[in-house]
């Protein structure tokens, strides 16, 4: 009996590991294939020889991509929006979360403020009113169109607010006795203490700005597209208008699929670089937020 049970357990373990390995591979294979395509030469790609390993290895698609001015220009726009946008996100989150973490008798109208924020999670004006507003504020084709409309991230405010509520108020009282105002209490006690939470929020805002493309498409002109929008325009819409003659000549020697693959990889690399940190703070982030019973 016991032996049978053990054998059954053993088989379950083996099948389980096999199934999980296979699933993980299936998730991964598209990426491996794309990396292989980006490192293979034209003949191999056209001949359908490239599967999960580069054939006739070459860096040429990458050097082509990295020498394109349009690519670097859009990279610059994205860098700008990540720097300005994520900083703004985090500063606003801190300044909103701190007062709102106080109980109602310490912050008058707290209830009203919280509802003003919360309501935006329930209802929004929709695409057209937002677009017209940005247009009438004369922000079209400026970096502010990418940064200001989404500057207040209500969900992150709630995350940090809940974190601050757990802070023992003796700490704050002590600071207050020492004559520290709210700004100093926030800056010297709350912010240093909540660095892990702030780092989590910062990372998610960075990834959010890096990945955003739709606002770039509707608010910006072609030569000011952020990277993801630029990628969308050439990988998905096949719009090669941004290319000049010498680039076109060079592209003829390459395979279109390899070039697209190389651009996607380059755009994914920064995510890959912050991925370990994302992972580290990720579980902490969930614990702060959704699972909090």
């Amino acid at each position: 009996m016991n032996v049978m049970k053990k054998a059954r357990n053993h088989w379950f373990n083996v099948l389980n590991l096999l199934f999980l390995t296979l699933s993980a591979l299936i998730c991964l294979i598209p990426f491996i294939h794309i990396v292989s395509l980006s490192l293979s030469d034209k003949a191999a790609v056209l001949g359908g020889l490239v599967k999960l390993w580069p054939v006739h290895f070459t860096w040429e698609p990458y050097s082509y991509v990295l020498e394109r001015t349009a690519f670097w220009r859009s990279f610059g726009v994205t860098l700008e929006r990540v720097l300005i946008g994520a900083t703004l996100n985090v500063v606003l989150v801190i300044f909103l979360a701190y007062p709102l973490s106080k109980p109602s008798h310490k912050l008058r109208f707290r209830f009203v403020y919280v509802w003003i924020l919360f309501f935006t999670m329930l209802f929004n004006g929709g695409l057209i009113p937002n677009y017209i507003l940005v247009k009438e504020l004369h922000m079209l084709d400026t970096i502010w169109a990418l940064v200001l409309p989404g500057a207040v991230t209500v969900f992150n405010v709630i995350l940090l607010l809940n974190f601050y509520r757990e802070v023992p108020h003796e700490l704050e009282d002590a600071a207050y006795m020492d004559g520290a105002g709210h700004l100093r209490t926030l800056w010297q006690i709350y912010v240093p203490m909540s660095m892990p939470a702030i780092a989590t929020i910062m990372l998610f805002c960075i990834v959010g700005h890096w990945n955003a493309w739709f606002d770039g498409m509707i608010y910006m002109k072609g030569n000011h597209y952020p990277l993801q929008t630029y990628l969308q325009s050439i990988v998905i819409k096949f719009d090669f208008n941004t290319m000049n003659a010498s680039e076109a000549q060079r592209l003829a020697k390459l395979n279109d699929r390899s070039v697209k693959a190389a651009q996607m990889i380059v755009a994914a690399i920064p995510i890959l670089l912050v991925y370990p940190y994302l992972q580290k703070y990720f579980v902490a982030g969930i614990r702060l937020g959704s699972v909090k019973g």
Partner: peptide, 25 residues
């Protein structure tokens, strides 16, 4: 403390509530 809320609230009013009134179109 109310002052700390001002920048965020202005942005919210401008970019969330103004478009909400925009649904009148």
């Amino acid at each position: 403390m109310h002052l700390m809320l001002v920048p965020g609230l202005i942005l919210i009013l401008l970019f969330a509530y103004l478009p909400m009134t925009g649904v009148m179109i």
